[in-house]
Design a protein around this nucleic acid. Structure first.
Length: 469
RNA sequence: GCGGCCGUAGCUCAGGUGGUUAGAGCGUCUGGUUGUGGCCCAGAAGGUCGGGGGUUCAAGUCCCCUCGGUCGCCCCA
């Protein structure tokens, strides 16, 4: 999708799967998730729920509140905020016109929307917002890179104090630790400010011009557009040139220098290890002063940055607000979970039911019992379609439930229910015969709660067993 | 936008140099138990061999195109 796409074009796009063409689509092509997107099914989605809940818990304790903002915005927001010449804006944005001709774009990252919301509503500062949203980039997918991915992030607006940089970095650090990642490296750099960065860029540009012939093929004639980008290039040619390039550290203004020193001292005091990386250049133009990135050392794929952020003291003003300092970070959920896979941590079991109701009388009893137990707060599944008892118990077993409630003609006649242990809550796959007992309907819920309550010991009292084969 | 690799059942994959009705494991369903899951056994369902074209007496297999997936480059979470 490009800026020149007109709404009328929609009518001319051939329908995939439409009949009659010999272009390879003549027979029905299955409808599936678009390139670069994916479904997250249960039980994998349980990790997502747990991760977001964990993040929410961490940042809420630090005084951040949830911001829900639109997935698409006026395209000018991203052009001004992120920078026109940036690839993400220049050719990777999902940009479109709506039916009224408004120029919109699906957000390629999280920060710009948050800052737009701040400028629009002007809440009291310090304004500390967190979010969990999708982000969209039209690029070729590969391991750890998707056209729709998801980010967790925080933004703190209105505070210039390096303490806020520290708080933000520490929150990210805490997230990685909480999910159990140990092989994560924090890279830290400073980008200077509007006072000292121009001098640096000028010096860098002059230097690169003098040695442009030695740069790699990609940068030899593009370095002028974004000289900072060359610092980040991994090609040996560029590395050789930039190793002797002028350094920002020597050109920082006094305030930037003091700010950076405070951040570094603070990290030391917090016991957070970091790597000073003068080549670290974050992708977006809006960064000033502190920038940082977290790298998962366990990821062997090309995309191993699992989060990053920094200070962006000029962004609020750039999109129409008053001069306002701000700092934040974003974490890619997919990449974070890839890193967890690589380290074998943060395994979250799917939400198995606690009780499974087996009903041999047609299903109405199961309906009543499930409702009753669910009202007690229990996770309860049941069978449908009046299958054989064998089949229902098979379902019960596979569901992962701890207890089965069995009701058949006998129980119905006696207003009772049979409780059967499916697995020990402290379970190993034990081969011991399961215990079961009979309870009256009126005591069913209490007994189930009781059995699930002392989940650390035997589920059912042996003496109450009804003589299992 | 560019390049490498790969498309056979819901999943993971077998199917030398083309040769009958395309197989296995796992999963699903049913039965082995007139009301008892797991382990075991038996059976069943499930496939336009991604799609189109070509070569051939004959194509899952060879050729071309195309669609899809995946990994990498650029760039980025």
């Amino acid at each position: 999708m490009t800026a020149s796409t007109e709404a009328e074009d929609l009518g001319q796009v051939p329908e995939p799967g439409s009949a009659g063409s010999a272009d390879g689509l003549s027979s029905a092509t299955p409808i599936q998730a678009p390139l670069g997107t994916k479904d997250v099914l249960w039980p994998e989605s349980a990790r997502w729920e747990a991760l977001i809940a964990l993040f929410r818990s961490i940042v809420t304790r630090a005084g951040f509140g949830l911001l829900v903002s639109p997935a698409f915005e006026d395209v000018r927001l991203f052009r001004r905020g992120i920078g026109d010449e940036n690839e993400v804006v220049g050719k990777e944005m999902y940009e479109f016109a709506d039916r009224s001709g408004r120029r919109l774009a699906l957000r390629p990252e999280g920060t710009a929307s948050v800052v737009r919301a701040y400028v629009q509503h002007r809440p009291p500062t310090p304004w500390k917002a967190w979010y969990a949203t999708q982000a969209f980039r039209y690029e070729r997918p590969q391991a750890g890179r998707y056209r729709q991915h998801h980010q967790l992030g925080v933004e703190a607006v209105g505070v210039a104090d390096p303490e806020m940089d520290l708080e933000v970095i520490e929150l990210a650090h805490q997230l990685y630790r909480s999910v159990g990642l140990s092989r994560v490296t924090l890279r830290l750099n400073t980008m200077g400010c509007s006072l000292c960065r121009p001098a640096f860029i000028e010096a860098l540009l002059a230097y690169l011009s003098s040695r442009s012939g030695q740069l790699c093929g990609a940068h030899a004639d593009t370095f002028a557009a974004n000289p900072l980008r060359v610092l980040d290039c991994k090609k040996d040619e560029c590395r050789a040139v930039t190793s002797e390039a002028p350094r920002l550290a020597g050109l920082l203004c006094d305030e930037c220098s003091a700010h950076f020193a405070s951040v570094r001292d603070g990290l030391d005091a917090l016991g957070i290890e970091y790597l000073l990386d003068e080549r670290l250049v974050r992708g977006f133009d809006y960064y000033t002063r502190t920038t940082f990135e977290f790298q998962a050392e366990s990821l062997t794929s090309a995309q191993s940055a699992i989060g990053g952020g920094g200070r962006y003291d000029g962004l609020v003003e750039a999109i129409g607000g008053p001069p306002t300092p701000a700092v934040g970070f974003g974490v890619g959920i997919e990449r974070l979970l890839l890193a967890c896979d690589a380290e074998g941590c943060f395994e979250v079991p799917g939400p198995a039911p606690q009780v499974f109701v087996v009903d041999l009388t047609g299903g109405k009893l199961a309906r009543d019992i499930a409702r009753e137990l669910r009202r007690e707060g229990l996770r309860v599944s049941r069978s449908y379609e009046n299958r054989s008892m064998r089949s229902q118990l098979r379902q019960a077993d596979r569901s992962g439930a701890t207890l089965a409630v069995i009701v058949g003609p006998e129980e119905a006649a006696g207003s009772s229910a049979t409780l059967r242990e499916l697995r020990q809550p402290s379970h190993q796959p034990s081969r011991q015969p399961s215990r079961q007992e009979s309870v009256s309907r009126s005591e069913l819920a209490d007994r189930v709660l009781e059995l699930l309550g002392n989940a650390t010991t035997d589920v059912l009292d042996v003496t109450a067993g009804e003589g299992m084969p």
